[in-house]
Simulated scan of single mutants.
Amino acid sequence: MIPVISDYYTSATFDRLKAFADTKETPFLVVDTQTISQQYEELVGAFPYADVYYAVKANPAPEVLTLLRDKGSNFDIASIYELDKVLSLGVAPERISYGNTIKKSRDIRYFYDRGVRMFATDAESDLRHIAKAAPGSRVYVRILTEGTQTADWPLSRKFGCQTDMAMDLLIMARDLGLEPYGVSFHVGSQQRDIGAWDAAIGKVRLIFERLRDEDGIELKMINMGGGFPANYITKTNDLATYAEEITRYLQEDFGDDMPRIILEPGRSLISNAGILVSEVVLISRKSRTGLNRWVFTDVGKFSGLIETLDEAIKFPVWTEKKGELEEVVLAGPTCDSADIMYENYKYPLPLNLSVEDRLYWFSTGAYTSSYSAIEFNGFPPLKTYFI
C-alpha cells in the first residue's frame, strides 16, 4: 500500500515540507529542523540519566550540528574531517568522543592536540597507538554483540571484540598509563528487538564485576551506541517503550551503582525529519508478458539510497497519484547494474504513474546525503535543504 502520511508526519510538517519541495528541482532532500529538535527532546526526556553523543555520520550538515550543539548534545566523531567541522562550530573538545576503532596513529594525535581525551578501541595495536599519541586519555573498549538477525542494518563483526579480550585491553590500558574508562557496544542500527540491549548490558556487567573484583579496576561508563529505530515500513515500538525496557535492564544489572550512560543516536534523531524527493525518469517492462514494471527514478543507491543495499532499509515511498496499484521494481538512474533499490521486495505504485511524476521517500533524513556519491556518472551529490 501507499504509505499513509499521518503515520510519518503531522499534517503541518508534511504540508510545510511539500510546499517547499514543490519549488525545487529533483532530486533533493528536504529536512525539517523542528522535527530534529522534537526528536532530541524526546530522547533526553526518555533517558534523563544519559549523555547524548550525536553520531555525526548520520547527517553532518552544519544546520544539524549547530541545532544539536545549542540543545546541549555532545558528538561522536569518526574522522579528523568530522572533528574539524564540529570544532569550527565552537563545540568544546570535552564534548567530543573519537568513537571510531579504526584510526591512524597520526589521527589520534590530531584529536589529542585539539583537546579530545576520550577514545574508543577494540584492538591491542590501536590501544598502544592511543597510549603513545594520546597519553593519559580515557579509553573505552567496544565489545561484540548479538542482534544481527533483528537489526535491519547490522554492525557487528567488523567492530568490537570478545568479552575476554575486552577485559585484557582494559587491564592493558591501565598498565600503559591510560584511564580504563568503560565499555561500549552497538546492537545494530534500526534494531527492532529491545532484548538485544538486555544481552549486551549483561555482558558489560560481567566485565565491570570481573575487573573490579580481580584487578581493582573501577569502570565508570557504558556507551550503549545507537540502534533506536526510525519510522520505516517495518513496525517498531516507540522510543518510550525502548527507554522503559532498557532502563529496567540497567537497574536490574547495576541497581544503585549505575555508571555514566552514553547514547550515540543518529538515525533515530534525524531520519524522521527528512523527505527525499525524486522524479520518475522511465517506466518499462522487460518483456511483453512481464508481470512487473520497472520504475527508474533520478535518485538511486549512489545518490543517497545506499541503505537499500540487500533491500535492508525499506523506505516508505509516497506519490500523489491515486488509483489501482501494481507491484513494481524500483531502480536508480546510473549505468551500474547494482543500482536497483527494490527488486525482491516489490513496491505497490499506481498503474497510472507516469514519467516526470514525483516520488516522496519518507524518513530519509539520516544516512542519505552523507552517503551520496560525488559525480558517479557525472551526477552531483544529493542537494539538501533545511527548513
Rank of each mutant, 00 (worst) to 15 (best):
Pro180Leu: 09
Phe362Tyr: 02
Tyr54Cys: 10
Arg16Met: 05
Asp310Arg: 14
Val281Ala: 02
Leu176Lys: 06
Leu67Val: 04
Val56Phe: 15
Ala240Phe: 08
Tyr140Asn: 00
Thr297Leu: 08
Gln34His: 11
Phe75Asn: 07
Ala123Met: 00
Ile340Met: 09
Ser303Ala: 09
Pro259Gln: 04
Asn100Asp: 05
Ile130Thr: 02
Phe20Pro: 12
Arg138Leu: 00
Thr101Arg: 05
Met1Gly: 06
Asn231Arg: 14
Thr247Met: 11
Asp22Pro: 00
Phe28Trp: 07
Lys103Gly: 14
Asp70Ser: 13
Thr150Ala: 00
Phe119Lys: 06
Pro154Asn: 03
Asp257Cys: 08
Pro265Arg: 07
Ala312Trp: 01
Glu94His: 13
Phe228His: 09
Val91Glu: 11
Tyr249Leu: 02
Leu89Ser: 06
Leu269Phe: 01
Thr234Cys: 11
Gly147His: 03
Asp32Phe: 00
Ala133Cys: 00
Tyr53Arg: 15
Ser369Cys: 07
Lys203Val: 12
Lys235His: 15
Ser137Phe: 00
Asp336Tyr: 06
Leu127Glu: 04
Asp193Asn: 11
Pro3Ser: 05
Ala338Glu: 03
Leu353Asn: 14
Asp15Asn: 05
Asp238Pro: 12
Glu218Tyr: 08
Lys321Trp: 03
Thr234Leu: 12
Glu245Gly: 12
Lys57Met: 12
Arg16Asp: 06
Gly378Met: 11
Ile283Lys: 02
Leu127Ser: 01
Val299Gln: 04
Gly304Cys: 08
Val4Trp: 02
Thr26Cys: 04
Tyr232Thr: 13
Leu291His: 05
Thr150Asn: 02
Asn377Tyr: 13
Phe376Ile: 09
Thr364Val: 03
Phe379Ile: 13
Asp298Pro: 07
Gly266Cys: 06
Asn74Gly: 15
Val328His: 12
Ile275Asp: 03
Asp213Trp: 08
Val30Asp: 01
Ile233Gln: 15
Leu269Trp: 05
Leu282Glu: 14
Leu144Met: 02
Pro348Asn: 01
Gly304Tyr: 10
Asp213Pro: 10
Leu206Asp: 13
Val328Lys: 05
Asp113Gln: 06
Trp294Asn: 03
Ile313Tyr: 01
Thr121Asn: 01
Asp107Gly: 02
Pro381His: 15
Ile96Lys: 06
Asp310Ile: 11
Ala19Asn: 08
Gly323Leu: 04
Thr319Ala: 10
Val183Arg: 08
Leu250Arg: 10
His186Asp: 14
Pro60Lys: 03
Arg138Ile: 00
Ile313Arg: 09
Ala12Tyr: 02
Met1Glu: 04
Ser370Glu: 09
Ala373Ile: 04
Arg138Asn: 07
Glu326Ser: 03
Ser156Thr: 01
Asp256Pro: 06
Thr319Arg: 05
Tyr181Val: 08
Phe111Glu: 03
Asn377Asp: 14
Ile270Pro: 07
Arg142Asn: 00
Ser156Asn: 06
His129Gly: 03
Ala366Met: 05
Gly188Arg: 14
Val139Glu: 00
Gly332Leu: 03
Val299Cys: 11
Leu89Pro: 10
Ile96Thr: 04
Gly323Ala: 05
Tyr249Gly: 03
Lys71Gly: 08
Ala50Asp: 14
Asn74His: 12
Val295Tyr: 07
Ala166Cys: 08
Lys220Met: 15
Ser73Asn: 09
Tyr232Ile: 13
Met118Gly: 06
